Simulated assay, not measured.
Amino acid sequence: MKFRLVLWLVAIVALGGCSRSRGGEKGTVAENGEALRKAVSVETVRTETFVVYGEYLGEARGIAEVKLKADVDGRVESVFAKEGGRVSAGQSLAEIDSQKADKTYQAAVLSERLARETYEREQRFLAEGSSFQLKVDEAHLDWLQSQSNLLKAKSERDSAFAITPISGVVLIRYIDLYDNIESGDPTFEIADLSRIRLTVDVPEADIAGVRELNEAEVVFSSYPGRLFAGVPTSFARGRSENSLSYQVTVLVENPDMEILSGQTARVRLVLRRFPDSISIPSRAVLIRTGGHYVFVVRDGIAHEVQVRTGASSNTRTLIEEGLFTDDVVVTEGLNRLTDGELVEVRQ
């Protein structure tokens, strides 16, 4: 019996010691008699410009893109370009029954020159009094018709030689050697990727801020940790009835052509700026009955302070009233923290 009584006394003493060293609430003390302090992380309040962004999804396109098509039926005789290859404006990318198209073009050039010379000659004869206005008009009509024929022949020749009107990169090659193609079939798709054009849909509620066309931040899905600078250049003055939003165009420099057409991106546009403002991490704001609260540390004690919040971003909240410069706000360790509790700031 005496042995059991001793064991009970030892257990009671041990539990009493634990109760004195455990906890963190107000009034709790350690074995040495000193009050325990709850560890917290803090941020010192500073005034700065608080920026509110809107974030939207967009798809990358080259600053200029063109799809070449065949104007006449024919057989692919040669192919000079491949997908991913760089090409220059005026360069031939393939030949499709090119001899026929070239001869037709040369004949059209000659016909236009002869028609122009005839018109000019009739004008001189009319001035000398040896011609009639009717003949001049007929010659003028023939010249205009020859110009139209020349434009058509040039288009067919450019198509037969797959001449690109822009410099850039071959995105898609639709043809292979010895393919038989028909008029209207695509041959190549070319894009100037030196600059990327992004078009995003901005909701009506945000368009007032975007209209100032401030800078943009762009993150492409293929480069998740890299930030690209963008420049908003224009926005549609009319709302899309399908999405009930306004389209905004953003340009991104792409000198190394590492961004490809069709890649998706997240675009952040500046909506509003609040100069000389106080903002804190949103996780530091507690929502309770009666309003919003934060904990401010003064002389090692956490004080609960009511604040009036304003706009917010993804991570921070604007504080309109309740905080001042150099206040020390608790940002981590708020769980079960109470007003007047002793705290220790983590370094």
Rank of each mutant, 00 (worst) to 15 (best):
E182N: 11
L260N: 14
L36A: 08
A115P: 03
L251D: 10
L193I: 01
D97R: 05
N32Y: 00
D142L: 14
I287T: 15
R316H: 11
V13M: 12
G90S: 03
S131R: 04
T249P: 01
E128W: 10
S21N: 13
R4M: 08
I166A: 02
A139N: 09
A14D: 04
T317M: 09
A153C: 06
S261H: 04
G290I: 05
A60C: 03
V231M: 06
E304D: 04
W143S: 13
R157S: 07
D339I: 04
G291K: 12
L244V: 11
Q145F: 07
G74Q: 03
R272E: 15
R61Y: 01
Q123C: 07
A229N: 09
G209C: 09
E120S: 08
D102T: 11
L177Q: 11
A208K: 10
P275Q: 12
A162E: 13
S240A: 14
L68I: 04
G230V: 08
T118R: 12
R116L: 10
T309N: 10
R298Q: 06
D256N: 15
T309C: 05
A115Y: 05
G238A: 04
A216V: 04
S194R: 08
E212K: 09
V10E: 08
V29H: 12
V297N: 09
E212D: 14
R283T: 15
P186Y: 01
V6S: 03
S313I: 02
V267M: 03
K38D: 01
M257H: 06
D299S: 11
S41V: 05
F324I: 06
E122S: 07
L198N: 02
L286S: 15
H303G: 04
E253R: 15
Q133K: 13
V6T: 09
T317V: 15
I172K: 07
A108H: 07
V10Y: 03
S243P: 05
A108Y: 04
S159Q: 05
F235W: 12
V79N: 07
V72G: 08
K82A: 12
V252P: 01
L57D: 10
A284K: 07
K38H: 10
R268I: 05
L227H: 06
V345I: 15
L144Q: 15
Y178F: 08
G209Q: 07
S111D: 14
P275C: 07
K152Y: 02
